[in-house]
């Protein structure tokens, strides 16, 4: 009983982190219809920036969240406006090739800048833990989960209640109608990408405090985001959360009861099954209702 509870708790904690890491990817896919293959690089940029800021300022890495998100917001805006938009204007497949190329270039740039060596962010509570009944909780993973849930809630509130969130949703649902209403669609696209990049950066901080990282890890986080989005559905924080939690639970339950080598097998099996029976994901496309 204790082992099942521990496995479920570990799965939920891991799933929350997967969800945060995927939400930016989901939003870009849902609003811009762009598969951002450089998503993992944005996540790693967040991790490296948190490392730099926390070491330079001697502060907790989670306190670097606003600064890192601000930097990634600006990077994301410029990246979409001045690179990706030009590719999309020519043919939509170009954006995928472009983001793939950018990911390769930035990965090598990171090796130049930071070396290929593994890095880790070690906050003061990195090794703390606590118990709730028979279940052992790793404090750093729980703090990462809390940060993930808070950020996902903030993003959901932003999309639902803020004027800019409404504009983003309107543009995603009816681009032409939004344009006729005077919405600057290119600006909205860039803004959506900027918000997504900021959240990828925030995910990078959270991942950086629980896992060692190196430039080579970018593919892992792009792939995980892709799986989470397919499982949960496109375009909404709730879809990312459901997909992430499902992925986390499947990973830990498989590792515990089938074998630690098999989480990827069950993860991709689930992906194939869902693509066959419910290709729009569990929650569907958040913006598809009026399309």
């Amino acid at each position: 009983m204790g082992l099942i509870a521990q496995t479920l708790a570990d799965g939920l904690v891991l799933g929350g982190i997967y969800a945060l890491a995927a939400v930016g990817f989901s939003l870009i896919f849902g609003v811009l219809h762009v598969i951002n293959l450089s998503h993992g690089i944005l996540v790693l940029m967040g991790a490296y920036l948190a490392l730099i800021f926390s070491e330079a300022l001697h502060i907790d890495p989670l306190l670097c969240l606003p600064a890192v998100m601000a930097v990634l917001f600006c990077v994301g805006y410029c990246y979409q406006r001045y690179l990706i938009q030009h590719a999309v204007d020519r043919a939509s497949i170009n954006s995928m090739l472009l983001t793939f190329g950018v990911a390769l270039m930035l990965q090598n740039a990171m090796i130049w800048l930071f070396s290929p060596d593994m890095k880790s962010i070690t906050p003061s509570y990195a090794f703390a833990s606590f118990k709730l009944g028979p279940v052992n909780f790793d404090a750093v993973r729980v703090s990462a989960l809390i940060a993930s849930l808070v950020l996902l809630s903030l993003l959901a509130a932003f999309l639902r209640y803020s004027p800019m969130g409404r504009v983003i949703r309107a543009t995603a649902q009816q681009t032409l109608a939004a344009r006729l209403c005077g919405v600057n669609v290119r600006h909205v696209y860039a803004l959506t990408f900027a918000v997504s990049a900021a959240f990828a950066g925030a995910a990078g901080i959270v991942i950086g405090i629980i896992l060692p990282f190196s430039p080579n890890d970018e593919g892992t986080w792009t792939l995980n985001a892709f799986v989470v989005v397919v499982l949960g559905g496109v375009g909404s924080p709730a879809g990312a959360l459901i997909g992430g939690l499902l992925l986390g639970l499947v990973s830990t339950l498989t590792a515990q009861y089938v074998g630690p080598a098999f989480p990827n097998v069950t993860m991709f099996l689930l992906l194939v099954i869902l693509l066959l029976i419910r290709p729009q994901g569990l929650l569907g496309n958040a913006f598809s209702a009026s399309r």
């Binding site: 521990q6 830990t252 630690p260 990827n264």
Partner: peptide, 19 residues
């Protein structure tokens, strides 16, 4: 315990080690 080539979590393995 055989881990996949890319590992993000070993909590289940460690639960078995503790057991």
């Amino acid at each position: 315990f055989e881990l996949p080539a890319k590992v993000t979590d070993v909590s289940s393995v460690l639960a078995s080690v503790r057991a």
